[in-house]
């Protein structure tokens, strides 16, 4: 079933985030995605996140589409101006990509091209309006298009630091919906009750809300998140659980699966971010009973 249909009909959707190679060797990507056949609803493809240059999401989306999956690609304003973005979005539609998520481009602090010039011609709201406009058959300059694209377009929320911040993000999300966003992707929180509260807040905006399940891979990573992102709700107990486990990697898989299970009734869908551990996705899905 199509993602749009599933989400709008209130069925639980499973999205998986996959990284596109830095280079043209797509064999790993294809292998990983094939193992997910008929187990997931869509594949989310970030575009040069972290400022690391790699194959564009558009290209990756086309590859994923060719494999018979439904791609969801990120669009953002950091690297391209309105000309490039509109062109790419039109191309995406022609290649069978029907889902977009409008995101904020990551900072270039840890980029592999720190010297690159950032564009920032359009912001998130601009991008959403742009999609709206294209769907109406007009480009941003008001010229007619030959054929109108139709997208299912989502938006993303920034990591929530505290209650005040939650309100801010809530207001922003409201604007994004007004600008045309049809679903919301909420960043990960590891404390399920807290996450439930956050998700519920966004649910009140009456569009499908997708929770993110982020794969912890080792103690160092968990510790980093717990120190640097107090809003993540990543507790010492959880870190201790990984540390004490006989097989830490399996434990991490279990943790992710548990999160998926507990989010099933809460969110409209989950986006599993297992980047780097794509080969463990089937195990996570098994374990989550999906």
């Amino acid at each position: 079933m199509m993602l749009r249909k599933k989400l709008t009909q209130g069925e639980f959707a499973v999205l998986v985030e996959l990284n596109i190679p830095k280079g043209v060797d797509i064999s790993e990507l294809v292998t990983h995605v094939r193992h997910l056949k008929s187990r997931i609803d869509a594949v989310v493809i970030p575009d040069m996140d972290g400022g690391v240059m790699r194959m564009s999401a558009l290209g990756g989306g086309a590859v994923i589409r060719r494999e018979g999956f439904e791609p969801v690609i990120h669009i953002y304003g950091r690297d391209r101006n309105r000309m490039a973005i509109q062109g790419d979005v039109l191309a995406a539609q022609a290649l069978g990509i029907q889902n977009l998520i409008v995101v904020q481009g990551d900072a270039m602090a840890n980029s592999d091209h720190p010297a690159a010039k950032t564009v920032d011609d359009l912001n998130e709201l601009d991008l959403l309006s742009m999609v709206q406009s294209l769907q109406k058959g007009l480009d941003l300059a008001g010229f007619d298009l030959k054929g109108k694209p139709a997208f299912f377009t989502g938006c993303q929320v920034q990591p929530i630091r505290d209650d005040k911040h939650l309100l801010e993000e809530y207001e922003k999300a409201k604007e994004k919906i007004a600008a045309g966003a049809q679903f919301i992707v909420v960043p990960p929180v590891f404390d399920i009750p807290a996450y439930t509260q956050i998700l519920n807040k966004f649910k009140s905006l009456k569009v499908p809300v997708i929770a993110t399940v982020f794969m912890l891979k080792n103690v160092g990573m968990a510790r980093y998140i717990s120190i640097n992102d107090p809003g993540s709700g990543l507790s010492d107990e959880l870190i201790g659980r990984i540390r004490k486990a006989k097989d830490r990697e399996t434990e991490c898989v279990h943790i992710a699966a548990e999160m998926i299970r507990s989010l099933k009734g809460v969110a409209q869908g989950v986006k599993i971010s297992a980047v780097g551990w794509e080969d463990r996705l089937p195990a996570i899905l098994d374990c989550a009973g999906l």
């Binding site: 990284n19 972290g50 990551d106 602090a109 840890n110 592999d112 982020f214 160092g220 998140i225 780097g276």
Partner: peptide, 30 residues
């Protein structure tokens, strides 16, 4: 690469491959 964690490792001496995750968004690269 500041704010970066090592998350996986494979390969042989001379051809190692290591996975890194960076920043709060934990962007992955190998």
């Amino acid at each position: 690469l500041t704010d970066t964690i090592i998350v996986d490792h494979s390969g042989v001496p001379g051809r190692f491959k290591t996975g890194l995750q960076t920043g709060l968004r934990m962007n992955y690269m190998q």
